[in-house]
Simulated assay, not measured.
Amino acid sequence: MEWQCTGLRWPEERGGPVLGWRKGREVRGSALAYGTEFGFRAEGVRGCSGARGNVCPVGAVVAARSTGGRCPECGRLDRAHSVAADTIPDDPRTYRVYLAWFGPGLVKVGITGEERGAARLREQGAVVFSWLGRGPLMAARRAEELLRAALGVPDRIPYARKRAVRAELPGAAERAGEVAELYGRAVALDGGGWPEALERLPFEAADHAGIFGIGGGGERAGGGGPVGVVRAVTGLVGGGAVAGRLVAAAGPDLHLETGADGVVVVDTRLMTGWALAAAGPDAGVSVPTVAVGGGASQDGLF
C-alpha cells in the first residue's frame, strides 16, 4: 500500500500549510515553506479517500476532477456526520459564529466548532475574519440564518470566486474596515431575533494575509510581487507532473511559480487519493489546466 495524499491542512494558529498523507490508518504531514521548490508526479489511479478517517471499503476509483475525492457511499457517510448536515441537533459542543472576508464585497457568515479555533477559516481561504458569538449548535445555526437574511450575505461562496479576487486585495485597513462595518450591523440586531443562548463576542479582525503568503494590493508578504494566477489545474492524470516554486497558499490552494507557465494554482482537493512521487522543478506542468476566469470546474463550496 502506498502513501496517499489527503490534501492541505492549516493546523497551527500562526504556522504555515501542511500537506497530509495516509497509508491505511497511518498518517503524517509535510510542512510546506514559501520560496522553496515543490513538485510531484501522480502515479497509478486516484483512489477514494474514505470517510471519517476510515479507508474506503471497496477501494473505489474517483474521477480526476472531483474536489470531494470520495466515492458516493463514502461521500454520504462523511456528510452525514458533518455540522452542515444538521444531523446531530443535540450536539453538546460549543460552536462559534463568524464573518469571513475573501475579497471586496465577498463576505459570508458561518459556524465552526470552538475547539477548531480559526483552522476552519484558513481552510476556506478567508483573508480576514471576526468572531460574532459562541454557544450551542442550534443557537449558532439560528444566528447564522438570521444574519444571512438581515445582512444579505451568503453562507456559501463558490471557490472559484474566492480565487478570482485573491490577486487584487486592498490593504489591511480596508479589509478590516469592511468586516467591522458588517459586524456593527450584526450586533445591532441584538433585539431582533439574536438567540439568547448565544454569547456575543467582541470585534477583532484576524488577518491571514501573512500566513497565506499574500498581502495588500495583490503583493506577497515580504514584497515578493504579485500572486495573480494565470492558470488552474483541473485534475491530475497518471504520470502527469506539477512543479514550480511555492509562492503562496490559501485555503486548499497552492500557488506555484512555474516560469514559462506563470503562476499556476493547484487545488489540493484534486490531489487527495493519489499516490504522488517527487518531481524536480524542471518537470513543469503536464496535467490539464484552464485559464483562471476561463470556466474552471470547481464544484466545491465553502
Rank of each mutant, 00 (worst) to 15 (best):
residue 56 C to H: 12
residue 76 R to L: 15
residue 56 C to L: 12
residue 78 D to L: 12
residue 89 P to K: 05
residue 55 V to E: 01
residue 104 P to V: 03
residue 83 V to K: 00
residue 93 R to Y: 04
residue 97 V to R: 11
residue 120 R to L: 01
residue 70 R to W: 03
residue 76 R to D: 11
residue 82 S to D: 05
residue 103 G to C: 04
residue 84 A to N: 04
residue 74 C to Q: 15
residue 88 I to C: 08
residue 116 R to C: 05
residue 102 F to H: 15
residue 82 S to R: 08
residue 65 R to F: 12
residue 59 G to V: 13
residue 75 G to Y: 10
residue 88 I to M: 06
residue 109 V to A: 03
residue 63 A to H: 11
residue 84 A to Q: 10
residue 82 S to N: 04
residue 60 A to D: 14
residue 114 E to R: 10
residue 92 P to E: 05
residue 71 C to I: 02
residue 69 G to D: 04
residue 109 V to K: 06
residue 58 V to M: 03
residue 61 V to L: 11
residue 103 G to S: 04
residue 122 R to W: 15
residue 95 Y to G: 08
residue 108 K to E: 15
residue 104 P to I: 01
residue 60 A to Q: 11
residue 70 R to T: 07
residue 118 A to E: 12
residue 58 V to C: 03
residue 107 V to R: 10
residue 121 L to S: 05
residue 88 I to W: 06
residue 62 V to I: 09
residue 79 R to H: 09
residue 100 A to Q: 13
residue 72 P to G: 11
residue 102 F to K: 15
residue 98 Y to H: 11
residue 86 D to I: 02
residue 71 C to W: 12
residue 96 R to F: 02
residue 67 T to E: 12
residue 78 D to A: 15
residue 76 R to V: 13
residue 123 E to I: 10
residue 96 R to I: 10
residue 83 V to Q: 00
residue 91 D to Y: 08
residue 73 E to C: 12
residue 123 E to Q: 05
residue 105 G to C: 11
residue 80 A to F: 07
residue 55 V to R: 00
residue 95 Y to I: 12
residue 63 A to N: 14
residue 92 P to C: 06
residue 94 T to N: 04
residue 101 W to V: 13
residue 87 T to R: 15
residue 103 G to N: 07
residue 68 G to F: 02
residue 81 H to F: 02
residue 120 R to S: 02
residue 119 A to D: 07
residue 67 T to K: 01
residue 108 K to W: 09
residue 78 D to M: 13
residue 124 Q to N: 09
residue 61 V to K: 13
residue 54 N to K: 13
residue 124 Q to S: 08
residue 114 E to M: 03
residue 90 D to R: 01
residue 70 R to L: 09
residue 94 T to P: 14
residue 89 P to Y: 12
residue 86 D to M: 08
residue 66 S to N: 14
residue 91 D to R: 02
residue 118 A to H: 13
residue 59 G to H: 06
residue 85 A to E: 03
residue 64 A to V: 15
residue 94 T to S: 07
residue 55 V to Q: 00
residue 112 T to G: 00
residue 118 A to I: 12
residue 82 S to F: 01
residue 105 G to P: 14
residue 92 P to Y: 01
residue 94 T to Q: 05
